[in-house]
């Protein structure tokens, strides 16, 4: 009985030490996404700026960069120049940038858009269900949807120009093939 107890103790302590050490490799704040690789959930939301609606179906076959943002979100302001640049570059091509207002009032969002001079289509997700469908944790989050309608990638936090362009170009190359 004592010999079993000895071995069991050694195995358990070693096992505990090893797994706890392995635990250092992970970052508990890094939650892997659930929707990457799955078809992008369709949505039809009221537009922020006029009486029309913004619908994902309308951009079928195109590459969609979906950006969740809010007027109260400081990193969203930081990433805005990158978005503006990308929009300038790809406007009118097979790439479209759509913004979705996340947990914000339409008035504040309109203010923000007008102040920063953003011209790409933005929609208001009033009940937040679209954000839930995509698995959004908090703004800013950017989703890259390929021409096949599948979510190819997601970026949490303020996005920089490099990541935006790389993502878009990868998807355009994939679409051409």
């Amino acid at each position: 009985m004592t010999r079993i107890a000895r071995y069991a103790a050694v195995v358990l302590i070693l096992g505990l030490a090893v797994t706890l050490t392995l635990a250092f490799r992970r970052d508990p704040h890094d939650i892997k996404t659930g929707t990457v690789g799955k078809p992008a959930p369709a949505f039809t939301l009221p537009s922020l700026t006029d009486a029309s609606t913004v619908s994902l179906d309308a951009y079928k076959g195109k590459i969609v960069v979906l950006n969740f943002w809010s007027s109260w979100c400081v990193p969203c302001k930081e990433e805005n120049p990158a978005l503006v640049d990308a929009w300038e570059r790809y406007r009118g091509t097979d790439v479209v940038l759509i913004g979705i207002v996340f947990q914000d009032t339409a008035d504040a969002a309109r203010d923000y858009t007008a102040r920063l001079g953003n011209t790409w289509p933005s929609a208001v997700d009033d009940d937040g269900h679209v954000a839930l469908g995509y698995g959004v944790f908090g703004p800013p989050e950017t989703y890259f949807i390929g021409a096949d309608g599948v979510i190819a990638g997601r970026h949490i936090g303020p996005i920089d120009e490099q990541t935006l362009l790389t993502g878009i170009e990868t998807l355009r190359k994939a679409a051409r093939q």
Binding site: I31, G34, G128, H129, G135
Partner: peptide, 28 residues
């Protein structure tokens, strides 16, 4: 927002498993 979505799905007649599966699809 999640509670509201759950309430909507319950009203639509989905089962508990279906509703949970929807969230697992989005968040893992």
């Amino acid at each position: 927002s999640m509670r509201a979505l759950v309430a909507q799905r319950v009203a639509e007649g989905r089962t508990d498993d279906e509703i949970r599966a929807e969230f697992v699809r989005s968040y893992g």
